[in-house]
Amino acid sequence: MVCQLVQEKMKNNQVLLLIDNDDLINKAKKVGINTFLFPVQGYSVGFKKAYEITDIKEEAFLYINRNLTNEDIDNLKIIMTKLPTNIKGIVFEDLGLINVLKDTNLIKIYDSRHLNCSYLSVNAMLDFVDSVILSTDITESEMKIIIEKASKKISLYTFGLNRIMYSRRTLLTNYAKEYNLDKKEEKDVLEKVTNQKFKVVENEYGTVFYPEKFYNGLRLFNLDAAYYMVNLAFLPSGDQDKLLNNFKNSNYIVDGISSLTSSYFLDEETYYKLPPKEEK
């Protein structure tokens, strides 16, 4: 059932597949995904590869997921006037882009990340953009209420590593410098109290933390949304194939990779105020 829905969304170009390597494009096309989301070189954090806009040949959305400086904004104002016609839309995180994009015909999707977690906040943002990608910090029930009350169709992050911390500092470089070690741009570290692993990814614009497991919100394809973002970055190539083939075939959608995934907060709300000790 879920697979049929996915295929329908793929056909309607509603599945935004994030591309962090060239091979993925062909693999995705074979299963029927034709709309791609490209991290933009110089304007994204947390990926092994980002793309120059001129190198993007597919029908695409641009992904600008970092906080922007004044200089970035000025540069993007120029870039936006020269976009090739294959660029259909833009997924962005910095509110400064709203003014920059307002006179373009691009589809504007605000990636609220951790900020817009209520239907009123989402609706307030929808006054300025075409869609908002809901936060992964909320439960599926909360998402359903937002979808029901939203003034436009929202979008959903359905699979991938969740970016759970974004520092402007170059934390891996700083560590290597402190201890005179070779610099790495990607490293798994272990939080010692809870034994949780985190993936740390750095580029010159900052450092990102991801949790060990991939967020599995594929069941959200059941919900009515404008776009469904799928992010296979850092998923081993063989597992990418498994997941994409599941999109194409009629198997259960995370068959073979479920141990790598978690639904995180889809079913379990985070604490707002701590309960009294005896109730914990």
Binding site: L115, I164, M165, Y166, R169, G206, L274
Partner: peptide, 23 residues
């Protein structure tokens, strides 16, 4: 903060306390 303020939910993942709601 080590993170850009507002861009961190490490607490959510390690302790289930919501960083952006004061936890």
């Amino acid at each position: 903060c080590s993170s850009i303020s507002g861009k961190c939910v490490l607490s959510n993942y390690v302790t289930k306390r919501d960083s952006n709601r004061g936890g």
